[in-house]
Simulated assay, not measured.
Amino acid sequence: MTDHSSRHALVIGAQRCGTTYLATALDAHPQVTLARPARPEPKVFCDEALAARGAEWYRRTWFAHARDERVLVDKSTSYLEDPQAPARAAAVLGDPHVVVLLRDPVQRAVSHWRFSTGHGLETRDLETALRADLVEEQPWDPDRTSVSPFAYLRRGRYADHLAPWLATFGADVHVVLLEDLLADPAVLGGLLEALGVDPALAPPPEPGPVNASEGERPVLGEAFLGTLQEYFEHSNEALAAQLGRRLPW
């Protein structure tokens, strides 16, 4: 039976930023449990009609397995770029913890292209696909995917996507950078402590690499890499200002 004194947490990191890796590490903690089934992701707060069903339906549907865990985690990468999702989540959950996992946006874009290609959604080569997204938003079929499989660069403008979450939840938003998470075990411990659970009870997380099954990594040409870094320059500066720290990329 679900303990209604538990606090909810949303893991809303951008797609291809290691959110499954982080959610698995959180779920391994005895005081934390992940929504089940984990796939497909709940995506409740991307849908006004589903969110309107309320907290009891939400808990009964996604956390029927929970017992006395302190933190109930919903991992849905689609939440980050939906500007209406924060208000819906606040209406249903009150004051959840919000965990945002981010990654070098250029590396994320490459990983995203590999994912779309591997799932038969993308047929263009890497540079052609990324250049198309530089020009305009690409058409996509919402019946096949919940978010665009071609938003390789737009999805990496993290500061824009993060703003509504910071405005709604403020200090309850915990931003984690994948590069830091993989380099320093203390980052996961600090996050667990921020979520209100004992870091000492956490088993060691699985070692990387994240998304290791993606196959051979394509290489971007120096000139085009410079174009992408310029594209993200303003967004990265805004993100650094939001976080009050320098970025590791």
Rank of each mutant, 00 (worst) to 15 (best):
Y21A: 11
F45K: 07
G13A: 10
P42F: 05
I12E: 12
A28I: 01
V11R: 02
A28F: 05
T20G: 06
R36V: 13
L26P: 10
A35E: 03
G13C: 10
C17R: 02
R39D: 13
E41G: 09
A28L: 01
A14V: 10
L26W: 00
A35K: 03
L26I: 00
T33D: 14
E41W: 05
K43S: 14
T19R: 08
C46Y: 02
R39N: 12
T24L: 00
L22R: 00
E41I: 11
V32K: 04
K43N: 15
P30Y: 00
R16I: 15
A14T: 09
L10Q: 10
P42K: 03
L22Y: 04
A25S: 11
A9V: 13
R36K: 11
R39P: 04
A14H: 00
A35H: 11
Q15A: 15
F45R: 09
A35M: 07
L10K: 06
T20K: 07
V11C: 10
Q15D: 07
E41Y: 08
E41M: 08
H29K: 03
T33G: 05
A28V: 01
C17Y: 06
G18D: 03
T20N: 10
A9F: 12
V11P: 01
F45T: 08
C17K: 02
T19N: 10
R36P: 05
T24Q: 13
H29S: 03
C17L: 03
Q31A: 15
T19I: 13
P37A: 01
V44Q: 01
A25G: 07
R16H: 13
Q31W: 00
L22I: 11
T24H: 07
T19Q: 09
Q15G: 15
L26R: 00
P40L: 14
A9S: 12
V44A: 07
P30G: 05
H29Y: 12
V44P: 02
V44T: 14
K43Q: 13
T20F: 12
R39I: 14
D27T: 05
T19D: 10
P37I: 04
V11T: 09
T19P: 09
V44F: 06
P37F: 02
A35C: 10
Q31N: 05
A28H: 02
Q31C: 03
L10V: 05
G13S: 09
C17N: 04
A9M: 12
A9I: 14
T19S: 15
P37Y: 03
L34I: 09
P30Q: 05
R36M: 14
T19G: 12
A35D: 01
D47I: 10
R36S: 14
P42G: 15
R16M: 15
R39S: 13
P37T: 04
R39V: 15
P40M: 13
P37W: 01
P42Q: 06
L22F: 10
D47G: 07
A14Q: 01
V32N: 05
L10A: 08
